[in-house]
Design a protein around this nucleic acid. Structure first.
Lengths: 129, 129
DNA sequence: GGAACAATTGAACAGTTGCGCAACCATTGT
DNA sequence: ACAATGGTTGCGCAACTGTTCAATTGTTCC
């Protein structure tokens, strides 16, 4: 298209080299770039979804939606070692998705975020489309 | 607690060995197990979020929310090589999140799922809590 | 204090992931 | 037919991830 050709001239050679491209719809790219959130936000967004990208963590969060539980309970429920569960709980703790309280030797975990349910729900809607 | 002690007896030694646990609130675990979705569904859910767990894929999807784009456009917008973009578009294609149409030598990509916006939105709400 | 035990942690290992490179395929124009 | 070009793909590398094992911490009970 003529549009694309003029774009090539407009963006300059240096920029084109960086992405190894020649055909660029400059106007569309400019529009989209303006509307997109900043890279830092999108990186945080990816990091958030990264927490939900492991089935062990998903199962832990799903379990905690129904009840507070200790590490032993979760390990038994999922058929995994306490160590494995504890490692994942650490990740969930660091991202502020779960909180914990100690009662003697036992540590109880529970959800610390009301958004988790909503995010899960949207995901499930997609799964069962 | 007395409750926990009785649980140990109830669940049996073999099951406990599997998770290296002694203190188990059997009633709670049973309740939660009943309410939880099947492991296959939760695995699919994790796989779905895995797609959103990379910032490159997130940026691509975010861009396509605003306009259909060719590979060159996306590569230029994100400052990456066509190869890198194409690799990620493949993943998005396989999970049915984007569709593509060919116009001559140029391949245009666009969103193929109305749920993406909703999932992103829930994530963003959490980010900006 | 010391035994028992829930939980955490660090190191190590296997498996996975994202990207660049080079080769390739698909389409257009001459 | 051939060159040019947008896009795809297989391979390899470096970085990362999840689990296990062993050692450690924190707490309770005697």
């Amino acid at each position: 298209m003529a549009n694309a050709v003029t774009s090539v001239v407009a963006v300059g050679t240096a920029d084109v080299d960086r992405c190894d491209c020649n055909v660029i719809h400059e106007d569309i790219v400019a529009q989209v770039r303006e509307k997109m959130p900043g890279d830092d936000i999108l990186l945080d967004l990816a990091d958030l979804f990264k927490v939900f990208s492991d089935s062990t963590r998903v199962r832990i969060l799903c379990a905690l939606q129904h009840s507070e539980m200790c590490v032993c309970d979760i390990a038994f429920l999922l058929g995994m070692t306490k160590s494995a569960i504890s490692h994942q709980l650490r990740a969930l703790r660091q991202t502020r998705l779960v909180k914990h309280r100690r009662d003697g030797k036992v540590v109880y975990y529970s959800l610390d975020d009301e958004h988790v349910s909503n995010i899960f729900e949207q995901g499930l809607i997609h799964i069962c489309e």
